[in-house]
Amino acid sequence: MNKYVHGYSYDEANRLHDQADSLADLLHYDSVWEKGSIILEAGCGIGAQTKIVAPKNKNSKFISIDISLEFLDQARNIADSNRIENVVFQQANIFELPFGDEYFDHIFLSFVLEHIPNPIQALSKLKRVLKKNGTITLIEGDHGSTYFHPDSEAAKKAIQCQVELQKQNGGDANIGRKLYPLLDQAGFKEIKVYPRQVYVDDSNPKWVEGFIKNTFTAMIKGISEEAISKNLIGKKEFEKGIKDLNRTAEGGGTFCYTFFKGIGAK
């Protein structure tokens, strides 16, 4: 069975956490399973996380599924261009998994439950194909964990528009805080949840560019048209919110966001 810290001591895990200089390090420094594992990556999307995790587990085999053939094509391209050879991509629906009972040693999902209206049902379906004592690993964000300096009501309102739109699509942008109860209600045991906080200030320009600007603010900016057309916010207030988010990426600004990594055993 996969133990959470995978041979690391608690202190070692904390040290790696503190030294993480990229989001991939922060989320995946411990995404390592024992050699020879067969691992299901459910909802791989374009393979952005596959590209990080598969090379860390070269002696294990991944079956990475997604319901979208278009995403899978992109995932294959990314895997091929990175010479990743231990992943098989397959179209499949999490709610109708085409695998026998207890087929996988471990299961891994990144940013999937945030899109699913019934995450407990999804976890229960996944549990069927997991071997006894095998583990499931979940990684999700939580927009409610966002705070920054200088503070801004307009920025917080713009972020809340994204939360509302994701909710209207059947998802949950604040699901990170719920990983423990979700795993518990789906019947997993030995559950552990580990917050992974992104904290950005002037001392780390790579995070300023990569996370505040190109990821978080870009995400909020991307919903502008829909948020305004649905009267969730006025155009001027939304634009001020984006301006204020960008301000946090300038001199003297700081930004915090917390991801959650949850692990449970069958």
Binding site: I46, I67, E70, Q74, I78, V112, E114, Q166, A173, A218
Partner: peptide
């Protein structure tokens, strides 16, 4: 929409631009 999608877009803008030009009618 979602932070996972945003991370993918940030990591692979070209791939995601390609996706955005296609019909996604069957994708969950």
């Amino acid at each position: 929409i979602g932070v996972g999608i945003a991370l993918g877009v940030a990591m692979y803008p070209a791939q995601n631009n390609k996706i955005k030009t296609e019909d996604f009618s069957s994708g969950e």
